[in-house]
Design a protein around this nucleic acid. Structure first.
Lengths: 171, 171
DNA sequence: AGCCTCTATGTGATTGTATAACATTACACA
DNA sequence: TGTGTAATGTTATACAATCACATAGAGGCT
């Protein structure tokens, strides 16, 4: 049992905190990934495909060991490196993101465009929504330029309460 | 030996990537912490003081186990909770920050003012500089308002190359 | 002083996260 | 068909974080 097992997954859960056709959402994303890998000469192997599928099942971040549990169920290797290597591939190529705050991973909602993602993390239900940010504009960018720091990547993660849990709390 | 031991600490290292009188920097900060704890009725105990001193020694983020090693050298308890409890206290009261990207901790450079810190992390020398950000203004804030997400705290961490390492790389 | 309570510390054990190191297999392609 | 490279499998281990429980001190109170 890993940490994630404590919360029950809601297959019709929030995407950007909004409901949608989740089955199509998953299969569309898998197919899109397949197409892009073919186009870019990337190898979309069974483990990588399975890990992406696992992540797509829920719009929440999953820890590596939760993923590992599911890989085992499907007969894949179940040692940590198996999951971490697939995750590295997915993150590197923009199919998934790492949520630093949670030491966990989530499928990207628009893998095609290159982007600087930002995340909103609900501390009550663990739902995670992806959005855009441009932190390099604004105070952070100014400070970097002033000091000579060369920004290569930024992590922007907001912790708070998602709309569904706000409603629940006020009910 | 823990991970941090691999890199040699530079006692005259960068603060916001700029040189300064580090001895005074440490003792001033400790004294300021002492004063503020007295004023706010907080107990600035020996362990907490020592952990803050350890963090102040270098403008880098230290992992909990690196801190633990140093605590042991000074005769304090050396089990993980000793460090984590002191770190919880320091973070809660604004004397230190947690760097999510590194699962590590760093002393705050201006503990007096309440602030939304942002960090610049050098991936080559591990130096970390603290600055300000206002992520809730801008795209992230717009997205939060649009979806009804209530932001309570934001993590902003930029990864890149610090001025010193940029110079080294170009030399 | 003595007592009480609450906070902080010490310690052992356990769980979760991540990587190093190395053997093996699958694939691309000359 | 051999050969180099990328991907996978497996063991072991390092690092991060928390639980549970025992003990010690600080401060308030009579």
């Amino acid at each position: 049992m890993t940490r994630e097992s404590k919360k029950t997954a809601d297959a019709s859960g929030p995407l950007g905190f909004a409901h949608h056709d989740h089955g199509a959402c998953v299969s569309d994303a898998l197919e899109a990934a397949e197409v892009r890998c073919a186009a870019d000469g990337l190898r979309f192997t069974p483990v990588r495909r399975k890990v992406l599928e696992i992540l797509l099942q829920e719009h929440r971040a999953l820890g590596a060991y939760a993923i590992l549990d599911k890989l085992r169920e499907d007969g894949f290797g179940s040692q940590p490196p198996v999951a971490y290597r697939a995750l590295d591939f997915l993150v590197l190529n923009g199919f998934a993101h790492r949520i630093e705050r949670l030491n966990a991973f989530i499928a990207c909602v628009h893998p095609s465009e290159t982007h600087t993602p930002a995340f909103m993390i609900c501390r009550l239900c663990d739902a995670v929504a992806e959005t855009q940010s441009s932190p390099a504009r604004g105070a952070l960018g100014d400070a970097a330029r002033a000091s000579g720091f060369r920004i290569e990547r930024t992590v922007v993660e907001a912790e708070g309460v998602c709309p569904a849990c706000v409603d629940k709390a006020e009910a």
